[in-house]
Amino acid sequence: MVAIISIKNLTKEFKTRRKEAGLKGSIKSIFSPSYKLTKAVDNVSFTIKKGEVIGFIGPNGAGKSTTIKMMSGILFPSKGKMDVFGYNPQKQRKDLSFHIGTVFGQKPQLWYHLPAIDTYNLFSKIYELDEKSYRSRLDYLVKLFEVEEIIFQPVRKLSLGQRMRCEIIASLLHGPKVLFLDEPTIGLDLIAKKKIRELLKRLNENEKVTIVLTSHDMDDVEQICNRLIIINEGKIVYDGSTKDIREKYLKYKVIKVTLERQVTSLGLNLLGVKTIENEKYTQTLEVDTSKQPVQKVISQILSKHKISDITVLDPPIEEIIERIFKKEL
């Protein structure tokens, strides 16, 4: 398939003001500021094909949002070439805006005190959609996202998960070919996160919409993205299939158990299970899933102990990046 987005040697430098400590430094920085160049995005290249679902992950400040902003024309690159559907985002931002949708998880676009439907009507005017196709598009999206009732209630009365679903619809009304989502699941609980993932997956399957999302939550990406770009300190550290990452680096799961009674050891006798933390009531285990399925570990814990809480986590993204570096070096 043809690439619809191609990014070459993209670099973004920011000037930051440096300041010496204390009041003296504060005053000095006002009158003779000294600057430092920081590379937020450093010589990044990749291409995106139609229908791909791509996860951009990396720790906070890695350059994920900056890259997305450059692709949608909001920020201009310092160096590099971009081609998004044949447009140059820097020069043709407005033309491009008809083909892309953006959702910023932390910057809601819905009117807080009004039902989402009012914002949708406004957006239909912003994109100058004709009434009939807008109505049928809205009907379709509302069904797809299962928000038939919700869009008629004031946004302030919705749960965070419902709000995010409505936010995403607002960015899809004009039928964009690619949807950029910046931290779409931030602050959501597990069930709401799962719902959003499902819906995005369905959207991609139904419409072949290309989805690019950023997250610092490995779970998000693992569930829906077929391709993963891991970015750290402005550089791409990994670009490949999610499957590969899962097999190589995500074979570890972390299980955190809180017991009702204090024990010195869980007394498990299983291959590939390691205790990494042992506190009074809480035990943290690391499980190598290639050697031992998580279910088995859990069922053994349940059969041996009375527990008050149990959670299964992925290792944090920082740790995955660290492992990638270790393997490569």
């Binding site: 407005k94 033309d95 008809f98 009507n121 005017k125 100058e128």
Partner: peptide
């Protein structure tokens, strides 16, 4: 699809915002 930065379309948008602001005020 080209971009029409026409005055008429922007005035229409202005009326849309007036409507939605009023709706918000009525809440």
């Amino acid at each position: 699809m080209g971009v029409k930065i026409s005055l008429k379309n922007h005035l229409k948008l202005l009326m849309e915002y007036v409507k939605i602001s009023l709706a918000s005020a009525m809440e």
